[in-house]
Design a protein around this nucleic acid. Structure first.
Lengths: 369, 369
DNA sequence: GCCTTTGTTGTGAACGTTCACAATCCTGGC
DNA sequence: GCCAGGATTGTGAACGTTCACAACAAAGGC
């Protein structure tokens, strides 16, 4: 009995003055009746079709206003139009990189009049991933997959080929041709820059803390190794961590016991934060005893103590670029616009400094700043 | 000419074996033809209707599998069903509170089989807000408005009364009856606790840095004032800040010049972070010279130097609760389930300590930890 | 063996919109 | 004054699904 049912019965009395509230929302037909024109004319007005007499248009507009008419999206979609919507499939919404990417996508999508959906894909079980993808696909909709880790990569593979899709990945798989619906940051270059910088400060080598990766040899790790080898520096075993400050803290506790460790490159800023905390707690000064560099440049990095030297990775911009490409993909086929992908940028602050004791040992106090 | 048009022509040849790929996605009719039953039987199978002979069901299921059939959501919606989708209207996706709320909502929604949309409402211009709301409303869909600031409050008011909606607000407007579709955290209590704690440490008063608020007298500010007055402590003028660490840094620079400032309560952790940085830069030790307390307990708070004392505000849980209420609202009318709202919790770490010099002045060095 | 009941399947209509095409109304040239 | 041609408006059909109801088959009571 409740207040549900606008099911049975005829359409509301046409031409009948005001509200029409409570029951079924006004349709194109109600507007047509109210304005004394045909439904097709109403359709033309709401779609901005040119061939409508101004006077008629006014009439229809007034009726729309009066009835509070909003076009029914489902009906439009059913007829076959583009949905003007994207769903973002991501493993996470709170970690900085994912979150910034989502923000960029949302901005660009909103500017283009697109609705954006979010769906977190937690599992890496193939059946569950497939189910998540299926549910995320709406009629006429499109997808952006954030595929920085294994689950993401699996998600990517589960998307049917006829769905318009873009993906943010760690690196292109094989051919980096412009046709691939992928977008990525130059992680390798970022890592090379950071490592070279630390080396230039006099550190004999640089230790690396890895975040989870979609591939076995991540680009950041590869860049780090490359820079080390190019300088003829020893390559310590990288240490696999998670994403969180806590994970960095734990790794930092271990690293702090080894006096040979004077420079640590961390897979992201959260890790770096944890490492700095652990070092501080262990009585190792930063940057006096140990230099720490991160990736991302998240907003808090600048205000840490000490301010974090890091490689800025503009995920928000990458998200915007990604959406722009998706849009192009949906509108024309074949030819994609040339968009500039954001370049990583080393931001030098205070968490990395000159190596104090070239080779000796013993206690040392921070100099410098 | 391009690769677009599955428009003209008849339906694909029924009973025709395999794929049917490339063109129009398979419909209920295609499945029916393939399985040799009527479309209605197919409908019954995909909706789990009981009265279908098991053998028939198998037949249909096989055909669905083979054709890769996915029910068209638009068509279902058009017929009048619930959309099982929520759109979150939020002023922001990157600030911790909003982001955590979104995360909680997404989790709960996904568990309930709901799709979730996000739309940022940037403007506070009435017309633009109304437009944003209109666009966010899909057929059969529902809304969650995050209304902690002025724009959010305005958004809330722009939602038509017939749309199922929930809102996360700073505090209930007038009557806190259980019927309001609102959900909130006990900000006042949180602020009282934090302020009392600082006072208990021997500080003669507590300075307050305000984040933007939806009301003129925010709950956090009210709680702070209340605790101060209850203790007979002087009430310094609160300082209006933004949301970001930078904003906190700037406020901190000003505060650092005043030796009378020994305790600062910050509207959120980002502000606290900035204040700590500014104090440190100005040579004021934390917690030796100045105690700092924040709100939120964002993930990095524990790993700052020093670790931040703060009041944990569980926005993720609040998001889950909010969604649960929305769901109840959509399913039955009238009676809402009794859900427990998360309580604020003071997390004592190291950024606040005993006041060192009861009243005197001069230089001081940090004691304690 | 007939009639009622229950289970299973099929047919028609409707949801709100847009596309294709047909119909009507002007406007102006001859 | 008649007709070509453009502008404007209207009609029919279709998109894929579900609801209401009808039809048919199977099963059980007498």
């Amino acid at each position: 009995m409740a207040v549900t049912g606008p099911t049975s019965g005829q359409a509301p009395p046409p031409g009948d003055g005001a509200q029409g509230r409570g029951l079924r929302p006004a349709s194109i037909l109600d507007v047509a009746a109210a304005a004394g024109v045909s439904y097709q004319t109403v359709s033309r007005v709401i779609n901005g079709h040119p061939n409508v007499k101004p006077a008629t248009r006014e009439l229809v507009l007034a009726a729309i206003q009066q009835l509070g008419f909003r076009p029914n999206r489902a009906a439009r979609l059913l007829r076959g139009g583009l949905a003007r919507s994207v769903t973002v499939l991501t493993p996470n919404t709170s970690l900085y990189g994912y979150q910034a990417a989502l923000q960029g996508i949302e901005e660009a999508a909103r500017a283009a009049g697109f609705a954006v959906g979010v769906r977190v894909v937690e599992s890496a079980v193939p059946a569950e991933v497939a189910d998540a993808v299926t549910r995320a696909i709406g009629p006429g909709g499109s997808l952006i997959v954030i595929a920085y880790d294994q689950a993401g990569r699996m998600t990517l593979d589960a998307v049917p080929p006829d769905i318009p899709m873009m993906a943010m990945v760690e690196a292109p798989a094989s051919d980096p041709g412009p046709e691939r619906p992928w977008v990525w940051l130059d992680d390798r270059k970022a890592a090379v820059e950071a490592t070279r910088y630390l080396l230039s400060l006099g550190h004999s080598t640089v230790h690396y803390l890895a975040i989870p990766s979609s591939t076995h040899a991540s680009q950041r790790q590869a860049g780090w190794r490359e820079a080390l080898e190019e300088a003829g520096a020893p390559v310590p075993a990288p240490r696999q961590c998670g994403w969180t400050p806590r994970s960095g803290y734990e790794a930092g506790q271990a690293l702090a016991t080894d006096p040979a460790v004077t420079a640590v490159l961390c897979g992201n800023d959260d890790l770096a934060l944890g490492v700095m905390r652990a070092m501080h707690a262990a009585g190792r000064a930063i940057p006096g005893d140990v230099s720490v560099v991160g990736f991302d440049d998240m907003p808090v990095a600048e205000f840490l103590t000490p301010p974090l030297t890091t490689v800025r990775l503009d995920f928000a911009e990458l998200g915007r670029v990604c959406f722009a490409l998706l849009l192009a993909l949906m509108e024309r086929k074949e030819t994609l616009p040339h968009v500039r992908r954001p370049e990583p940028e080393l931001i030098i602050r205070e968490s990395a400094g000159r190596h104090q004791l070239p080779r000796g040992s013993g206690m040392t106090r921070a100099a410098g700043t």
